[in-house]
C-alpha cells in the first residue's frame, strides 16, 4: 500500500501582470487501488494540479506539500518523480520527431526500472498492450506522437501507463476529444491497469461521460483552485444532473 498525499498546495504561474495564484490550498489523499475523480469547470485549476504534481517548470509551488509514500515529491526533478512511481497522462501529448515509439518506450522502461527489460518479455508485453488498445503494430515504428490523431495520442498515453506500471497515475482530461469508441478502448485500458496492479488513479475531467466507463471510488468537485465538495460516485450523478452552478455561484 502506498499513499499520494497533497496538503494545502498553493501554486502560481507567472503572467505579464505578475504571479497569479491558481491553486489555493488543495488537500487530497489517494491510496493505492483507489480511483479519485477530480471534476471541475474550465479554469478551475484541474490541469494545474496535474502538472504541478508532475513538476512542470511553468508552475511555482508557493506552499504546501506533495508526498508519495512519505517521500517529498516537490524536492524531486521531473524524472525522479516518474521513477518514484508517478505517471501523468497528458491532455496534449508532445510530438518528438526522430524518436520512434518503440525506442521511447524501451528507454522509459529502462529508466523507470533501472535496468533494461528482458527483450523477449518486453516485445511480447508491448505487442499485447498495443493489441489491447487496438493499436496497429506499425505504431511502434512511428515517431512519438508525430501526426497521431487525438485518439491515437490518448491510446499511446494509456499504453505507456500499462507498460510503465506506475504507483499513481494522474490522467489529465484523457477523455477530451475522444469519440465513444475511442473512449471505451481507452477506459478499458485504464481499467485493465487498475485490475492488474495496485495503481492509484487521479482522474481529472470536465465531463461525467468517462465515469460511466471508469468507476471512481471518490469524487471531488474542484472550483477556484481548491476542493469545494467531496463524496462518493453519487456526487458525479448530481453533477450530471445539475452541473457546477451550485458551487460556482456559492464561491462568488
Amino acid at each position: 500500500m502506498a499513499t499520494l498525499e497533497i496538503r494545502d498546495l498553493h501554486v502560481s504561474v507567472e503572467t505579464e501582470q505578475g504571479p497569479k495564484e491558481i491553486l489555493r490550498g488543495v488537500d487530497l489523499t489517494i491510496a493505492s487501488g483507489q480511483t479519485h475523480a477530480i471534476m471541475g469547470p474550465n479554469g478551475s485549476g484541474k490541469s494545474t494540479l496535474a502538472y504541478s504534481i508532475a513538476g512542470h517548470p511553468k508552475y511555482t509551488i508557493t506552499s504546501g506539500t506533495v508526498t508519495l509514500d512519505g517521500e517529498d515529491l516537490l524536492e524531486m526533478s521531473v524524472d525522479e518523480r516518474a521513477r518514484a512511481g508517478l505517471f501523468l497522462a497528458m491532455q496534449y501529448p508532445v510530438e518528438v520527431a526522430g524518436v520512434t515509439v518503440s525506442n521511447f518506450l524501451r528507454t522509459a522502461k529502462t529508466a523507470i526500472d533501472g535496468k533494461a527489460p528482458s527483450l523477449r518479455h518486453w516485445v511480447k508485453d508491448v505487442k499485447g498492450a498495443m493489441d489491447n488498445l487496438k493499436m496497429d503494430p506499425e505504431f511502434a515504428e512511428r515517431d512519438v506522437n508525430l501526426g497521431f490523431s487525438g485518439g491515437e495520442k490518448k491510446r499511446h498515453e494509456i499504453l505507456q501507463m500499462e507498460l510503465l506500471k506506475p504507483k499513481f497515475a494522474v490522467l489529465d482530461e484523457t477523455d477530451s476529444g475522444l469519440d465513444v469508441d475511442a473512449l471505451k478502448v481507452v477506459s478499458e485500458g485504464v481499467n485493465r491497469v487498475r485490475e492488474n496492479s495496485e495503481v492509484g488513479v487521479l482522474l481529472i475531467t470536465h465531463y461525467t461521460r468517462i465515469l460511466r466507463y471508469i468507476k471512481p471510488d471518490f469524487v471531488h468537485v474542484f472550483v477556484d483552485g481548491k476542493v469545494a465538495a467531496e463524496g462518493g460516485p453519487e456526487l458525479a450523478d448530481e453533477l450530471e444532473a445539475n452541473g457546477y452552478d451550485r458551487w460556482t455561484s456559492a464561491s462568488v
Partner: peptide
Amino acid sequence: FYLQARGIPEEEARRLV
C-alpha cells in the same frame, strides 16, 4: 518535460531529442 515525465533523465532526454 514529456520525456522526463516518463522517467528519462534530462541529459538522456536531450540526447534522444
